[in-house]
Design a protein around this nucleic acid. Structure first.
Lengths: 361, 361
DNA sequence: TTGAAAGCGCTAACAA
DNA sequence: TTGTTAGCGCTTTCAA
């Protein structure tokens, strides 16, 4: 501390040292300036060598590359984001990761993003709307370049924040003619409707449903609506007592069956809002000695891997979660790369006929 | 463009306008300076009002808050990170989200982080080591404040990057006396060993294993090691033909059983590396008419929700994935908040005895 | 193809 | 308690 320096430098140096102390005395991480100095070029050249190599002569490019390696230089994402207004980061808020179908989509989404140099910021809402608003706000603060949301059912505040921030967004899993943001998904209602058509063809007339919770969940609602639409189409009654909504677990599925069975004229076929509920129904039926599909037909939704292993194997609907994840990531990246507008898209959700459905006896 | 201005201002203004055009002509997002001006205070006061409200008089605090709302101000995470050297972002690289157990941990991890104002950056390695290195590098570039890794088996480069960057890290799911970074998990080997003890107690002498792939996977390796250790302890032979490693799917589990069955003296009990493999074994046994547990005992690992619903219900080992996720998030946050060192911790992994194990007949 | 230099928006040291 | 101001490390004009 005894060295002499000019006033200005002194202040600068003190500040610099103070900062360093905070970081932990030790390693001063190299910056572009350090690389530039070591390579005998300007910081602009270093930046260019790193980001648009073609704009730099091979000689300098190599020299820079060598120094980067030698000094163990790691660019600062924050500085880069601040200067370029791009974070190479995409945000998402999903209800929960603890659901095989969401996880598969997110997995595919991340993988695709990663391939293009983007990192995924994951946030979960727990199906809580205020919390979702908060999460979107935070993602926007973090400066994400794009946003992915599950479904089309979001608080107005969410849409507004997205619009104000001009952040490109895509909603997945849903399907709608005039969504607030482009939507890459499939037609939940049509898929459910088609399954019921099949049941009706088999001769079922008393068809019930153990649906997923529809509040704030447009997919669950669409599936239920599809069932009701099909019933109406076939001139069948929608018996309220034969429709119940349950949270996502095997046990709730069991409860669902118990509930429908308590009706004077129980259903001969049950459409379920998802495979987990359908499995719950199957388990409860098994424990009650109700034979599936002889006494009762059951249809699931999602086509989880295990459903094909059960006996009887579950008839269900395949959800294109991986294609959706990939397509939405690609759409966002394309938009960010060359401005191609994000197009809504609907994937097919094939009906998977297996062994839990049979002609009514 | 006909207005006059001084040389210096001119340059500045042009640059400013150019930037703005890139962003999309329209909305000039407000900055601290705008808020400061509107509220008639300094930028420092705005910053303080936002970050450490107690350091600002109630009057100014309110004034600032009002202007923030009025102008729709959203702080820039990048600028904040650059200036403060903190991103309030934690990174993780997991093998895949498409695995109920990881997903549950990550879900709990994120939730806990979120509660403390942190956002989770998720990255997946797909069990690919070079890719994992790349992902860690990217997370570090993004300036994460902390890192969460699955297991203790990582490329040397990963450890080095973590050390060089002085980024606090925690490994989860594993257990080891001298891990490279603190480890919050459970003793996979001991849990597996305990399960085998149980099998031996039931009189089993020919015990096989359908293990998970152990390459680059210390958990799978530990589970296998635990089984071998238990066998040795009881003076039982480790028959190589009775040990096989399989990837994560029901079908591979089926293959595993087929393989062990081809041995002259097939096992009377099979320990599995995870529940999915165990279910595969059960399904294959069912299809072959092998009665579980009468003809064959089976033990899984993970205690997936569905295992309790199967008949017979699967005997397995409970993995504390949610506690692990929460504890590791809390540990990182505590470190970041007040420097409390991250302590390794091992949770119990209880043996869940159900109906797939029985005395050898 | 290269360099000089002006910011990007914020925080924090220091002075008042 | 508040204001001034110097950066944080990078990108991107603009000029050469």
């Amino acid at each position: 501390m005894l060295m002499k320096m000019t006033g200005d430098n002194n202040i600068t140096e003190v500040a610099r040292r103070t900062r360093r102390r905070r970081t932990g005395a030790a390693a001063k991480k190299p910056t572009v300036a350090d690389i530039a100095r070591a390579a005998g070029v300007s910081t602009a050249t270093v930046s260019r060598a790193l980001n648009k190599p073609d704009a730099v002569s091979a000689k300098l490019r190599n020299k820079v590359a060598r120094k980067v390696r030698e000094l163990g230089y790691v660019p600062s994402g924050a500085a880069r984001a601040l200067a370029s207004n791009r974070s190479f980061t995409i945000g998402t808020v999903i209800p929960t990761l603890n659901n095989a179908i969401f996880a598969a989509s997110v997995d595919a989404f991340e993988e695709t993003l990663s391939r293009h140099g983007y990192t995924l910021l994951v946030t979960v809402s727990n199906y809580d709307r205020p919390h979702e608003i908060e999460q979107v706000r935070r993602l926007l603060e973090r400066g994400v370049d794009g946003l992915m949301l599950i479904g089309l059912d979001h608080p107005e505040e969410v849409w507004q924040m997205i619009e104000r921030s001009a952040c490109p967004a895509v909603a997945i899993w849903g399907h709608n003619d005039k969504p607030r943001v482009p939507c890459i998904g499939f037609d939940n209602a049509a898929a459910a409707e088609h399954a019921v058509d099949h049941l009706v063809e088999l001769g079922h007339r008393r068809i019930g449903m153990v649906a997923g919770l529809s509040f704030g969940n447009d997919r669950a609602r669409a599936r239920r609506a599809g069932v009701e639409r099909a019933l109406a189409k076939h001139g069948l009654p929608v018996v309220p007592a034969l429709f119940t909504e349950k949270a996502y677990s095997h046990d709730y599925g069991r409860d669902g069956l118990t509930e429908l069975l308590s009706h004077g004229a129980p259903p001969t076929a049950i459409m379920c809002g998802n495979d987990v509920l359908a499995m719950g129904v199957m388990f409860e039926a098994r424990d009650r000695g109700i034979a599936i599909p002889d006494d009762l037909s059951v249809v699931g939704f999602d086509n989880l891997p295990i459903t094909s292993q059960l006996r009887p194997a579950l008839t269900t609907i395949e959800v294109p979660s991986v294609p959706i994840g990939m397509a939405s990531a690609n759409a966002i990246v394309a938009y960010l790369t060359d401005g191609s507008p994000i197009q809504s898209k609907s994937f097919p959700a094939p009906f998977v006929m297996r062994a839990t459905t049979q002609s009514v006896r």
